[in-house]
């Protein structure tokens, strides 16, 4: 899509920046019928926003998964530090 088409799409629907904002928050679920059509039309016609929508979801998924991924360079905790914490657990 060339820049003119994009500009027209931006006027008729929403700007790309606005779309990326809407993708992020839950407000898409609360759109009026008319705005929902505008939103869907924009995404249907704008490849860059379509990409962004998927990339944003992928980043979210990757971030939530990260915490259970084993670290490749697994660090071991220092023995003395371990001992100290164990004693505190016993005391408490």
């Amino acid at each position: 899509m060339n820049i003119i088409m994009r500009r027209i799409l931006g006027i008729v629907t929403f700007s790309c920046k606005r779309i990326t904002e809407m993708v992020e928050s839950k407000e898409v679920d609360k759109l009026s019928f008319r705005d929902r059509i505008r939103y869907n039309t924009h995404l249907a016609l704008c490849k860059a926003c379509r990409s962004y929508e998927k990339q944003s979801a992928l980043i979210g998924k990757a971030l939530s998964r990260m915490m259970f991924e084993p670290q490749e360079d697994q660090k071991k905790m220092d023995g003395t530090a371990k001992q100290k914490i164990l004693e505190k657990i016993k005391e408490s």
Partner: peptide, 21 residues
């Protein structure tokens, strides 16, 4: 200035790659 993407034409598409996770 119209709040639309500035595209260079050589954007990398990495969104389709599910194995990325």
């Amino acid at each position: 200035s119209h709040r639309n993407w500035i595209l260079t034409g050589n954007e990398v598409a990495w969104e389709e790659e599910v194995h990325l996770l």
